[in-house]
């Protein structure tokens, strides 16, 4: 088991992008930290969030619910394209994104520059 740790950095492409680096497990317990951090960032005016999942070790449906929350909150401000993108999700998360039809709405990237410039 590995505890959830979230760090935040800024990256500028065509628009300012807030990158949330998530390491550890996102489950029914720890997802609240992700929710709270994202809400704080969105309240602070962020319009584009890149969720860096390179160090994410596990994600349950709670994590998908969190992504849905972030996606919807960003969508309210900006309806042109998704305000949320994923960086380097695991093969398992990618499979679940597809199985649950999230991939149509939340794009995933394997390269950070490509991801930041996609917003």
């Amino acid at each position: 088991m590995s505890d959830l740790v979230i760090s935040v950095s800024q990256s500028d492409g065509k628009v300012p992008v807030t990158v949330m680096h998530v390491s550890g497990d996102i489950d029914a317990n720890s997802h609240q930290e992700l929710d709270a951090k994202a809400a704080e960032i969105i309240a602070g005016g962020a319009k584009h969030i890149l969720l860096d999942l390179a160090q994410n070790t596990y994600m349950s449906s709670a994590g998908f619910r969190s992504m849905h929350k972030i996606y919807t909150a960003l969508q309210a401000d900006d309806s042109s394209g998704s305000g949320l993108r994923l960086l380097k999700p695991s093969a398992e998360v990618k499979r679940l994104m597809e199985a649950m039809g999230f991939d149509e709405y939340i794009p995933t990237h394997d390269d950070i520059n490509e991801a930041v410039n996609a917003f």
Partner: peptide
């Protein structure tokens, strides 16, 4: 969970059982 609805319209209950 209704997997065909647009993401922002979805009610996410039932997703766990589906998984």
């Amino acid at each position: 969970a209704d997997l065909d609805a647009p993401l922002n319209k979805r009610i996410l209950g039932g997703m766990g059982v589906l998984l």
